[in-house]
Write a protein that binds this DNA or RNA. Structure first.
Lengths: 230, 230
DNA sequence: GTCTTCATCTCGGTC
DNA sequence: GACCGAGGTGAAGAC
């Protein structure tokens, strides 16, 4: 990891073209060749960057550039596409290199995947006598979160952390498709989420889709109990 | 802008909870209070971060923490939500501050708007005898990218850089609405994109919507020729 | 303000 | 490797 603080101007060309006028910025060069250009604001997104795989070529400025104060030119070329970043460095305030090693990485907890896993394990929440067919049941337009067998037919479940209209639309498409399959029909829809927006509930109900509010803490609690018991 | 290179462990709690084990990393503190935790790889996204508005509180480690090598603890609290980042700094390799000033910002050029402009100019790509009615044709549920007149009716075009299912849904809503207008009906749908995902193509075809793959470079090339001739 | 849509999206999963 | 969906999405424009 090399960090350079310098006044610079930057030109990007690739999926779009973009230009950064001359100003002081922080340049981060990572071990994998990637480069980030950060200013002292905005959010975590750099003003400009190059993602790996890429390679940096450092070159001397032309006489013209040198007259205008350019001390160094970096050309960052993506090795898979024709994306290119050209950075012209003027006054350099700092230039430091560090050895960081490989990062052990982030440990996440508590998202939609977890909800899906818990509901699959506690499939009875859909109603008595329901049995899991499979998670991520594949269809031509994408996987259904959960497919289960119910009384006299099947149940397709769409799971969201926050249930709004998009999720109901998604489930509706799956139901249209699944109900054309004589081996599955009739397929009932269940829209399951930690929180269901009123508009989504109205739309779902209007389409005969059942809404199921999931209590994440309770489901996790039961899961913990199961883990302890078995 | 303050840049600290240190071994650290990080805990985030907010919309999810996440943990970063102890390892050497780069910590960036921006003038607006935001904090980024970067490793020496990945892309431009930090391992962890806090977006403004937020405030950092620096505190002394407890005796326990000090025994385990913690030198400093930063608590980054979002001032609008209950998102919180707790960073425990161990050995500190570097700690530098810089004055960067406000950035003049990025100048962009050339995306979906350009595709729309080009297709409007080359409306014949829809088929022989087609004529542009207008770009951004207004409806009650939003503007249609392009409306054209075809053989015996009209054509509504939805343009995307990458065409997937969402775009087909959007176009379907427009078509439902436009076909109720006796002055326009029948209105045919064309889904135009640089790249159309297979699932989107299936859905579009199923709904009688025509798919049109746009060759951006070719269209731009024709545009350049036009520019030179006229 | 809120809402919608785009993004050099990034990232993780699965097939 | 391609494709699909989620994101602590962020950011810009419309209303």
């Amino acid at each position: 990891m090399r960090i350079v603080v310098a006044a610079c101007s930057v030109d990007y060309s690739g999926r779009l073209t973009a230009h950064l006028p001359l100003a002081p910025r922080v340049l981060m060069r990572k071990a994998d060749g990637s480069v980030l250009v950060h200013s002292d604001g905005g959010s975590y997104k750099p003003l400009n960057w190059m993602t790996p795989p890429c390679a940096v070529t450092e070159s001397e400025p032309t006489d013209d550039q040198r007259e205008q104060g350019v001390r160094e030119v970096w050309t960052v070329q993506n090795t898979k596409s024709d994306d290119r970043l050209i950075i012209s460095l003027h006054e350099i305030q700092a230039d430091h290199s560090f050895e960081l090693g490989v990062d052990p990485g982030l440990v996440k907890d508590g998202v939609e995947a977890h909800l899906q896993k818990l509901l699959a394990e506690q499939i009875g929440l859909l109603g008595d006598g329901h049995a899991l067919v499979r998670r991520e049941y594949p269809t031509a337009i994408g996987p259904v979160d959960i497919l289960a067998r119910g009384d006299g037919g099947h149940v397709a479940v769409e799971i969201k952390r926050r249930g709004d209209i998009d999720g109901v639309e998604q489930l509706t498409r799956y139901l249209d498709l699944l109900n054309r399959d004589p081996l599955l029909a009739p397929v009932e829809g269940v829209f399951a989420a930690q929180e269901i927006k009123p508009q989504a509930r109205v739309l779902a109900t209007d389409r005969g889709i059942r809404c199921l509010v999931l209590d994440y803490d309770a489901m996790r609690g039961i899961d913990d109990v199961d883990s302890r018991l078995f």
